[in-house]
């Protein structure tokens, strides 16, 4: 596909969006892993929620 004389601008735009979206996905996934690890470590230390199976009732 020929993107014409301004192909550099088009590719840069899509490339930058791709990098930004991948960065957002990496951020939420890494953050989730960090929080889950912290919860696991707390559980191993015997610190847990008072009503783990109450489901908020």
């Amino acid at each position: 596909m020929d993107l014409g004389p301004h192909s550099g601008f088009i590719i840069a735009s899509y490339g930058l969006c791709l990098v930004t979206v991948l960065g957002l996905i990496a951020w939420v996934r890494i953050d989730k892993a960090i929080q889950e690890k912290a919860l696991r470590e707390l559980a191993e230390q015997g610190v847990s929620r008072r009503r783990p199976d109450a489901g908020g009732r």
Binding site: V28, D31, K32, Q35, L39, L42, V47, S48
Partner: peptide, 17 residues
């Protein structure tokens, strides 16, 4: 939704600490 889930987990970690 993913970020909200993380924030809820972060607050649970804080509360437990």
């Amino acid at each position: 939704l993913m970020a909200m889930r993380n924030e809820i987990l972060r607050r649970r970690v804080r509360t437990l600490r």
